[in-house]
């Protein structure tokens, strides 16, 4: 049976879709069977980030409503044999997702895939609670910024109360993925530090993804950043996070400050 992961945040635009695609591709590159599922019904984007937007025929809502069989809706990645996408519907709204339908789809996917990665919509409403409902593990995507940290705290509360695992009295495994981290700003004291966010949210750290142009470039190309440029800083950080998800013990590498020669001289003086 595969593992179900929800990538969630509360706040919008913090990097859930980017992270779902990057982690999915990183795990698939380890030859594990992966499906990424877009739960953002009405505002789907995972297809674009994965570069599969022109191949979408059927979607999650079609499958739930019985208009398509599950295998018909799955899109195999052109670059990685073991990576699949189950897209969301762009035209319907999220009321078309029924709890029973979602449960059936997730249980089917678990039988065939090693990893079922659910890209949650923003917010704390129905769409987000449905996406987290069947998760075994939650990846809480957070930016080092006050409103994102606050919303992550709300989401952690929901993960501990509204999921099947929580209702059964089991412990929900939660990991913090700190994204869009700017080491230089944190160093200057203008951005929350890794330790600050960890102390406030008190869940274990899965990885630190630096703020990087490479992420934008990858989404322009329609490839997860771990495929578009596997040696870029954000890709390396996502590979590390994926290894941790898979249970390996990997020490966290702190993002380096990117400085020109000018910055180097200056910071030495300031120190």
């Amino acid at each position: 049976m595969g593992k179900v992961i929800v990538v969630t945040s509360g706040k919008g635009g913090v990097g859930k879709t980017t992270s779902t695609a990057a982690l999915g591709a990183a795990l698939a590159q380890r030859n594990e069977k992966v499906v990424v599922v877009d739960f953002d019904v009405g505002l789907r984007n995972l297809d674009l980030v994965m570069g599969a937007e022109r191949r979408v025929v059927y979607d999650l809502v079609n499958v739930i409503q019985g208009d398509a069989k599950l295998p018909q809706a799955l899109i195999r990645d052109k670059r990685l044999e073991t990576l699949f996408l189950l897209p969301a519907s762009q035209t319907r709204d999220k009321d078309n997702l029924t709890p029973e339908g979602v449960e059936w789809v997730i249980n089917e996917l678990k039988r065939y895939f090693d990893w079922v990665i659910c890209d949650s919509p923003a917010g704390i409403e129905r769409g987000a609670t449905l996406a987290m409902r069947h998760a075994d593990v939650a990846v809480v995507v957070t930016n080092p910024e006050v409103s994102s940290v606050r919303d992550s705290d709300r989401i952690i509360g929901l993960l501990d109360s509204k999921t099947l695992k929580a209702e059964r009295g089991e412990r929900m495994e939660k990991h913090l993925l700190l994204t869009r981290y700017d080491a230089a700003r944190a160093q200057r004291g203008d951005m929350l530090k890794v330790e600050d966010v960890l102390e406030i949210l008190s869940i274990p750290l899965l990885g630190i993804i630096p703020e990087s142009m490479d992420v934008l470039r990858a989404s322009n190309l329609g490839a997860p950043v771990t495929l578009a440029d596997a040696r870029s800083a954000p890709a390396l950080a996502y590979f590390e996070a994926a290894r941790r998800l898979a249970g390996e013990i990997v020490p966290i590498s702190m993002p380096e400050e990117k400085r020109g020669i000018f910055g180097k001289i200056f910071s030495r003086r300031a120190a």
């Binding site: 910024e145 940290v149 705290d153 004291g189 951005m191 600050d196």
Partner: peptide
């Protein structure tokens, strides 16, 4: 003044309340 320490403090107070 550095703004991050203030952010941290405000969050700690706020979240203690909300929790």
């Amino acid at each position: 003044q550095r703004s991050a320490p203030l952010a941290r403090e405000r969050l700690q107070v706020l979240l203690a309340h909300e929790r």
